[in-house]
């Protein structure tokens, strides 16, 4: 098990290094001048050159990539040119390891820019995840157990509607009616968990529900299908022939088999959501990773984009490892080696 995690982690790190190289080449050797983007629109050529030097854009791309990787391990000091730092000690910004670069647009390290956005996205994603897993499984089980009934058809029909509805419409409606018209909740603002767990949660309900409804619809349909498929398995028939009651038949025998494919999907869906839910964040004005990605993109803030890409990849890689470990836990036939 330990050896397995180590091996997977090594592969994951290798993958991240390749990812960083690819994004580096794509962004920093592309059509536009990164120094110009970093400096801004009204920069004189001298200023651009200064920026270029400060951020190391004057160096060959592989050298830049190398010092970026080194920065992740040992940290960096900006501006990169040692002479400039010695001349202007008040301008120096230290970027501690794992340093993901410096965003001139935000005049801050990428780490600091991400640091404020990560908790917001992670909070929305986690709360939504809990909602959609509970809701999706619950409706899926009810629909599967009453297969063919009006209840089943109702659940299937509703889930189709929610699945098809654009997130921004659901979000806007919830915001308009639940928060503004009926005032069941205050207008959601992000409150850090450390500040007030209660407020953190109540403020997250609306964005999380918005996000969860879409996934809940998908998961209700999927779990219904997986459960119905699993209930035709021979071992479920065996359990029935043993005289096992209906409820344990569902939860002990059928559901566990149906869960296996859902775990894979849930893990990857969560990983991607941890990297930001753009539309939901936009509707509720939560400045998470999704919004950050959009604004960084429109401001051509390349260092931040590279940071977000690597962060998202890390989430996906970790989720993959976790899913595989869970898999081995659920299915004794799977051996981690």
């Amino acid at each position: 098990m330990f050896a397995y995690i180590v091996r997977r982690a090594v592969i994951g790190v290798a993958l991240l290094i390749v990812m960083s190289l690819v994004t580096f080449i794509l962004f920093f050797s592309g059509a536009f001048d990164p120094a110009r983007n970093a400096c801004g629109k009204v920069c004189s050529p001298a200023q651009i050159e200064q920026t270029s030097k400060a951020l190391g854009y004057d160096k060959p791309i592989l050298t830049q990539w190398g010092s970026f990787l080194a920065g992740i391990v040992v940290g960096r000091d900006y501006p990169l040119d040692k002479k400039v730092r010695e001349e202007n000690p008040d301008l120096v910004t230290h970027c501690a390891a794992p340093c993901l670069g410096y965003s001139m647009v935000n005049t801050d390290t990428v780490n600091n820019v991400l640091k404020s956005a990560i908790p917001i996205s992670v909070s929305i994603a986690l709360v939504a995840f809990v909602f959609w897993i509970i809701g999706g499984l619950l409706f899926g089980i009810i629909a599967a157990m009453t297969k063919g009934s009006f209840l089943d058809r109702g659940i299937v029909g509703l889930s189709l509607i929610f699945y098809a509805f654009p997130t921004f419409v659901v979000g806007s409606l919830l915001l308009r009616f639940v928060a503004i018209k009926w005032q069941i909740f205050a207008l959601p603002v992000y409150v850090p968990l450390t500040q007030s767990p209660g407020l953190w949660f109540t403020n997250l309900i609306l964005p999380a529900v918005t996000l969860a409804l879409f996934y809940m619809a998908a998961y209700a349909r999927m779990s219904r299908a997986f459960i119905i498929e699993a209930s035709t398995e021979d071992y479920v028939r065996t359990a029935k022939a043993k005289g096992v009651k209906k409820v344990p038949l569902m939860f002990k025998h059928t559901l566990r088999a149906a869960l296996t494919p859902l775990v894979t999907m849930a893990g990857l869906d969560l990983a991607i959501l941890l990297g930001g839910a753009i539309i939901t964040e936009d509707v509720f004005g939560f400045h998470g990773l999704g919004l950050l990605a959009v604004t960084s993109n429109s401001r051509q803030d390349l260092p931040t984009i590279v940071g977000i890409v690597l962060l998202l990849s890390t989430f996906v890689i970790i989720a993959n490892i976790v899913v595989d470990i869970l898999y081995a836990y659920i299915d004794p036939r799977v051996r981690l080696d």
């Binding site: 050896a3 397995y4 180590v6 091996r7 051996r335 981690l336 080696d337």
Partner: peptide, 8 residues
């Protein structure tokens, strides 16, 4: 037959 562990 491959061994389990770090190096297979």
């Amino acid at each position: 037959v491959k061994s389990p562990g770090l190096f297979r």
